[in-house]
Every structure is written in structure tokens, then in C-alpha cells.
Design a protein around this nucleic acid. Structure first.
Lengths: 370, 370
DNA sequence: CTGAAAGCGCTTACAG
DNA sequence: CTGAAAGCGCTTACAG
């Protein structure tokens, strides 16, 4: 555990010079640079990040605020965790997992210990007091998901509107004219407006109207029982239904068997598309589900890149730990943050990827059918 | 952002005294204590954790080492992440997510930045170079999962042996005499010996022999297709099978329909128990699955408690952030670590919880059947 | 291009 | 019970 002082002594330079070499923060003559590099190698020197943090007032730690009491979190949240941590690491940062309630109080703790330079917020609601608190505190942050009032909020979110278009394009191209939507039931939940469900429903409503499709939408309780019930509700509301969009992973199996229970076979009689899901989840049912895969990995990655770009903005030529903050996916703007300014407001909507599997096919009477 | 110096000035004491009050590290007279407390409140003082870390040489940060490239991670891993972070927070620590490969190299980075006091390792294999490296480095750690040679390794793991007993007890009590085991197929994987599968298979082999049950075991590929195939393989190997233990969440749906494909109805003809799963996962299929729920939340919590107990051992009377490190579940020893020593070796096996649902019932010909 | 020095905000022997 | 002071290992104006 050699210190900078020891390296400096061995190289015959000041510790300031060692610091410059380590961080690339000042240019150093080639020979001096070499001597320092050699000394570091010989002593096995590594930077003490805590000391650096105290002196530089930047910890290079970002927090990922997650709802500690949330039971509904699934595979997509896990992917976000992992990809955010991985990307942070690549960019020379560390990701600390920060459990939080919905309260503003939890957010204040973030800033008080001065442990983190910036924050990622998960599971953001249409009205989210954490986002308000963050805005007020002035702590750099990026929202994963978005509030309804978001003109001043940097966010990365799934493009639910586009996902609905993709799903409807797919079904319409197969000849389907009567399409149902199945969304999670939040009526008994403390959550007032759940963004994903609200945006999906709104987008669906508009799109079927524009397309001139027959439609209905129902809500759905948890697990296979909820899905089975939803199947019956949907068939009751829209007896000639031939296409279903569902956004509730744990209910898809029940939806399939519920449809079977009404004498409708998937995909021969009814096609099903699972929204904001994953190919892996879709492969667990029989038939396998056509899915619109949620960009969980990309969201975690881009959220970190956007946050780090902002944190690094205005700071002199970054050192070894750089690694290229270039993004490159989705719609929206990718804000790199000019060298001078605070960086533009980054707002990114990421598309889902359509994965066609066994649960969707031509509408009855269309295409190669008996 | 008041500093300790400012608090000291306002209270008319030295900064050492403020430090003692903040950390409870020395007794302070009631009046002085009050003056300091008042000053802190008036100034809104909060401890700068970075400065404390540098001076005390303890960061109160622990790393959770997770396999960055692992695709198989699921809900149980997510629960571990969340519960570990939450418990760490309660104990005055922070949890940083540390992506790693399987290499020893990744482990060395842990120690070099001096950011973390201790480490949690996930997805530990029977032979795990990360564990070896950690042992060698002398960095305090707790393994989640366990290697085959583990006499010197502190770990928290699921009790696979006991889970098999619970499952077989359940099926045997229902009259089942011919029982199959379905495990993930690792033959095409770089993983040499996967602990959970290896331990489960071994436990199953012994237990059916001891119980005098007919048995067979087959491996299973991913998703519903794998499960369906496994059903056929199992029926071929053990035609009179009436009970199945499966430890592969994404294949359970396929197993159920594969059994149906051989003319066997669940639970009337065959009972199925899903090992190391969750009630939520079990509720996604139809019929709902009897599960042995993996103690993911408890594992995360206990691993942190065990690690923190070790880190705090030998350190003077902890401050406000204590909170009680008492555990209290599972077999094995719970090492609190005496005030003097390094703490005993904590090795804990946590039981699964049996959740009986629709997929298991009396064996054909037993109990109330037509 | 390089160095001397102050300072980041704490903790902790060491005295008293 | 309390204080003065050294020191944790860096970064960063400020000079030269």
C-alpha cells in the first residue's frame, strides 16, 4: 500500500507531480513521466480513492435509489442494477445501492453524508416526491422512468407509446381488427398514477382510434389466476377479440389458459403480445410469447452515461479512467455536455425490441389457414 | 454543510469533543453533550463520511461482488441485492455493486482502491477463484453460496440437502413412491461444478436410497421447450413416476405441459414441486406450483450482518448507527464476534419454506380419488 | 514543466 | 471529562 509520497520520493519528484501523472491533470515531461510511472510500478502504487475524494470533493460514487419495499420488481430491475453498475465501473465510478421509501426524507440523507456525486432514481411515478426533492436539492440526478411534469427532469425511460405502435403494427399486419389490452390493476394500490400503465393505456386508446380498430381494455390481478380472470373479462367485453396486448408478466400463463378456457386457442384464434417483457420470460410459457422486450440493460447503461457525463462536465481532461462516454441508442437527445456548460438536459426514450414467437399469428380467416 | 469545526466553535468545545459526541466513542459530560447536540441541530450538522473514512481508515462500505456476465440471475438474486443493501443501510453501512468476472484479477481491484471494508461474493461455485483470492488477500468477506472446500470460509447458503428432504417428505406423505428429479443441464456450460445442482442431486440420490423410493434424474434445457423435453425424458426413464422435483424456474411451465403431453395430469397423476423457487414464480403457472421458496431475502440480510459483525468486532463501542446485529435463523453458528477477537467463523445454512399449491396432491390410488 | 504548501474534514493517541 | 495537535493521503491554486 504505497502512498503518493513514497512514489514521489522514489522518483525524485514532488507529490504534486505524481498526482498530475496519476490523474493526467497536467502535462508532465516525458522523462519525468517515465520515472514516476516506473516508481509506481515498482511500488505497486494505487490511488487511494477516499483520500482523493476528500481532497477533490468528488467521490466518483453514484447512488441508485430503489424502492426498498417494492415487491413487484423483477428481471428488468435486476438488469438495470447490473448494467448500471457495470457501466459505472467502466467509467471509473462506483454504484451504491440506496434503499429508499417514497419520501423526500430519504432523499435528503443522500446529500447529507456527502458520499455520492449524483443519483439515479428508479421506479419513478407520475408524481414523485423523490424527484421533486432531488430537483430542489440540486443534486445531479437522472430519472429512470419519468414524472408527468418533466420538462426540467433528465430522464431515461422506455418508449411505451412506440411499443404500443410496434405491437399494433405487428397484429394489424397479421390481419387482426379487434384487439384487447390487459394492464395491471392498480385500483387497490397506493400508487396513484403508474407511469408505464397510464402511458400504455393512453397510447393504446389513441392508436386504436386512429387505426379504426375495435378494442377494449381490462385490468388484471396478479399471477395466473389474475390472467385467467382477465381473459374472461376481456372476452366478455370484446367477444370477437383476436389480438391481445398484455403488460403483466406473471399473468401471461393464466391469460393463455384463460383464453383456452373460453374455447379460444392461441395463436390460431387469438394472438398475444407481451409488452415490456423479455424473450426469456416469453419462452417460459407454452406457446412461447411474442414479446416486446424492455430495454432494461440499455436504460441502466444510458442513465449512468448521462449522469456521469454531467458530473464530468466542466472538469478538466479526465484521466485513465475515461473509457468513452459515447452512447448511441434510442430516440431523443444524447447530451454529452459541452466542456464549459452544465450539459444539456438529457431525455431519452428507448424502444422495445419485438421478438416474434409462438403466441402470434395470422388472424382467423387470414393467410394460410384451414 | 457545517463542519465539525463550526459546531465546536458554536458549542465552545474542541472538535475532538464533537467527534466523541457524534461517534459515542468517549463519554462526555451531560452538559457538554447537550451543548454539542444543540449546536449540531442549529447548524444542521451531518458527518462527512469521506473525511471520517480517511481518518479512521474504515469506509463503512462493503462490496457485493456479482458476476457481470451472468445471464441466469433471476428474482432471487434481485432479492439478495435489495435485502443486502437495506440491511447494510440499517447497520450504518453502504453497499456498492461490484461487477466482476470469475478472475482473481477482479478481486484485487477491490482492495487496491481501499474503498471497501469488506466483501460479499455471490454465485459462488464449488471451485471459485474469487474466494481463493479473497482468502489470500485477507480482506474480510462472506460467501453467498459455498465452495466444496469451505472449512475456512465464512458463508451463508441455502440448505439444499434439507430442501430435498422437505420436498420428499411432502411427496412421500402424499403416498408417492416413484419420484423424478429435474436439474438444469450444465454439460454445455463453462461452469464445472455448480453447487446448487450438485448438492441437490447428491442429496436426492442419498435420500431416495434411504427412503427406498424408485427414482430417476434428468437434466433440463432452458425455458418451456427444455421443460417439455425433460418431462418426456423423465417419463421414459421412470414410466411409473408420480412425483417430480424440479429446480429450474423457467422450465416449470414446459414440464407441466410436457407431462400433459404424455397423458399425465398434474396433480391428479403426477405431483410437481419446484425447488429453490418462490411463491410468486409458482403462481405464474397453471396449476400453481408447490414450491420450496428460496431464502433470498434472508441470505442477503444474514450475509451482511455476518460481515458487519466481523468488521465491527474489535472496534470500540459503536455509535448511533448500531441497530442490533442479532440474526436468528437456520442451522449453523451465528458468530457475533467477541469484543476482542476476530469473531468466529460464521457458516449458516438457511432453510427453504414449503408453500403447498395446486401442483401437488395425493398419489394416484391414495386418498380421496375417484 | 515542476515544487512547496495549504487544506479537504475528520479521528485518535497523547496529555492533562 | 476535555483539549491541542498530528495525521489520514490526496488535490490544487499559487509561484517560479
Amino acid at each position: 500500500m504505497a502512498t503518493m509520497r513514497e512514489v514521489a520520493a522514489r522518483a525524485g519528484v514532488s507529490i504534486a507531480t505524481v498526482s498530475f501523472v496519476v490523474n493526467g491533470s497536467r502535462s508532465v515531461s516525458p522523462t519525468t513521466h517515465q520515472r514516476v510511472t516506473d516508481a509506481m510500478a515498482e511500488l505497486g502504487y494505487t490511488n487511494n480513492v477516499v483520500a482523493r475524494a476528500l481532497a477533490s470533493k468528488r467521490t466518483r460514487i453514484v447512488a441508485l435509489l430503489f424502492p426498498a419495499l417494492e415487491e413487484r420488481l423483477g428481471g428488468i430491475a435486476l438488469r438495470m442494477f447490473m448494467s448500471a453498475a457495470t457501466r459505472a465501473s467502466e467509467l471509473g465510478y462506483h454504484l451504491v445501492l440506496w434503499p429508499s421509501g417514497e419520501t423526500e426524507r430519504d432523499v435528503r440523507d443522500l446529500v447529507s453524508g456527502r458520499l455520492v456525486d449524483g443519483v439515479l432514481v428508479m421506479e419513478v411515478q407520475l408524481h414523485d416526491s423523490r424527484v421533486e426533492a432531488l430537483l430542489e436539492l440540486g443534486l445531479p440526478f437522472v430519472s429512470m422512468g419519468r414524472t408527468s411534469q418533466n420538462d426540467r427532469v433528465p430522464f431515461v425511460d422506455m418508449d411505451f407509446e412506440e411499443a404500443v405502435e410496434q405491437a399494433l403494427d405487428h397484429l394489424e399486419s397479421l390481419g387482426h381488427q379487434s384487439i384487447g389490452l390487459v394492464l395491471e390493476d392498480f385500483s387497490a394500490s397506493p400508487i396513484v398514477g403508474y407511469g408505464p400503465a397510464a402511458r400504455t393505456e393512453e397510447a393504446f386508446r389513441r392508436s386504436v382510434a386512429r387505426r379504426g380498430l375495435r378494442s377494449a381494455s381490462v385490468t388484471c390481478g396478479p399471477s395466473s389466476a389474475g390472467g385467467r380472470r382477465a381473459a374472461h373479462d376481456l372476452v366478455a367485453a370484446l367477444p370477437d377479440v383476436t389480438g391481445v396486448l398484455i403488460m403483466k408478466d406473471d399473468a401471461t400463463g393464466g391469460l393463455l389458459s384463460g383464453l383456452a378456457g373460453t374455447g379460444r386457442h392461441v395463436p390460431d384464434d387469438v394472438s398475444v403480445v407481451s409488452l415490456a417483457s423479455s424473450t426469456a420470460n416469453g419462452a417460459a410459457t407454452e406457446p412461447t410469447l411474442t414479446t416486446l422486450d424492455a430495454p432494461g440493460v440499455e436504460m441502466g447503461r444510458l442513465a449512468v452515461e448521462s449522469l456521469v457525463a454531467r458530473l464530468d462536465a466542466g472538469v478538466g481532461a479526465g484521466g485513465e479512467a475515461a473509457g468513452g462516454a459515447g452512447a448511441g441508442a434510442g430516440a431523443g437527445a444524447g447530451g454529452e455536455g459541452g466542456p464549459g456548460g452544465e450539459g444539456e438536459l438529457t431525455q431519452v426514450l428507448l424502444p422495445c425490441v419485438l421478438h416474434v414467437a409462438g403466441s402470434s399469428g395470422p388472424a382467423p380467416g387470414v393467410g394460410a389457414r384451414g
